[in-house]
């Protein structure tokens, strides 16, 4: 690994100034679980690293049913997994966080890092899409909000500008009523990246599906919403045939790469199976 100079700003403004000054020579370090791995592999060779560990305003998780949930960019995945407001109000998100690698990694990896890194197999992004989450970005001249569903552009590429910092992610209160769940398909080890994973959220009113969200990770160059499958569900019943028919629409929305975790065709098929199983689970949970 090439040595670099380490900077430790104390505020978002300081951090933003630093990355503006450093330009392409600088990289932002959140938990380091991805950046340091890339650096050790020689795939990232920053001369300057701007560590965000000393920026208090990026830390913490707050939430209630009236205001929704705000996750600081530096909140760890372990916090997302364990903190009561998330477990109570957005249990699907806690479930997805629980599925990330190991406790050791979750203690280190952050919400902001997992989004900006934009690895299409990460666990949190599809679930944040299900909760209609919105990312807040701060740049030198403006602050803007981008829905997580519109954040990703390609493999390891987002709409976040080089001089912007993702400061927080907000789950709006209206999204918290869904029954959400996460199914990570792991045919190899239990701490692997997903071969394919599905996040889904439903609201069921009088036996009828009122709203539906389905998002898949590992199915292409970015995590993605499966809007056709969602539309097929809305207004329909909760019978197995209807859920299966919606799940059958998921593979068409995907374009997964063939790799050590499976062929593209296999991943598509596993997305279909996983979606159907997850929807069946959510429907049975909605009945209790």
């Amino acid at each position: 690994m090439r040595p670099f100079r380490y900077h430790r700003p104390g505020t978002v403004a300081e951090a933003a100034q630093l990355i503006a000054d450093l330009g392409e020579d600088g990289a932002i370090l959140a938990g380091g679980t991805s950046l340091m791995t890339l650096a050790r592999l020689g795939l990232a060779e920053p001369q300057h690293v701007v560590g965000l560990a000393g920026v208090p305003e990026l830390c913490g998780i707050e939430g209630n049913s009236g205001d929704g949930i705000t996750l600081g960019a530096m909140a760890t995945l372990r916090q997302v997994e364990t903190i009561p407001p998330v477990r109570r109000l957005a249990p699907g998100l806690a479930e997805a966080a629980h599925q990330v690698a190991t406790v050791r990694i979750r203690n280190q990896a952050t919400v902001g890092g997992t989004l900006v890194h934009a690895d299409p197999s990460q666990d949190l992004p599809p679930m944040l899409m299900v909760y209609d989450a919105v990312a807040r970005l701060t740049g030198p001249t403006r602050t803007r909000e981008v829905p997580v569903a519109e954040l990703f552009v390609d493999f390891f590429e987002t709409v976040v500008d080089p001089d912007e910092i993702l400061t927080s992610v907000h789950l709006p209160p209206a999204s918290l009523g869904v029954i959400a769940g996460y199914l990570k398909f792991l045919p190899r080890t239990q701490d692997d990246y997903a071969t394919i994973s599905v996040a889904a959220g439903l609201t069921v009113v009088d036996g009828c599906i009122d709203t539906a969200r389905i998002a898949v990770a590992g199915g292409g160059s970015t995590p993605q919403r499966c809007r056709e499958a969602e539309s097929a569900l809305v207004g329909g019943g909760t019978d197995v045939a209807g859920l299966a028919a919606a799940a059958d629409l998921v593979p068409e929305a995907l374009d997964p790469v063939s790799d050590a975790r499976g062929s593209g065709d296999y991943k598509r098929e596993m997305a279909r199976i996983s979606t159907r199983r997850l929807l069946q689970r959510l429907v049975s949970e909605s009945a209790t």
Binding site: L41, T102, T189, Q190, A260, R261
Partner: peptide, 16 residues
Amino acid sequence: MINPNLSDYQIPSLLD
């Protein structure tokens, strides 16, 4: 060799 790392080449973890 396209998987000379412990992400793409996996060995059993404690969870397995």
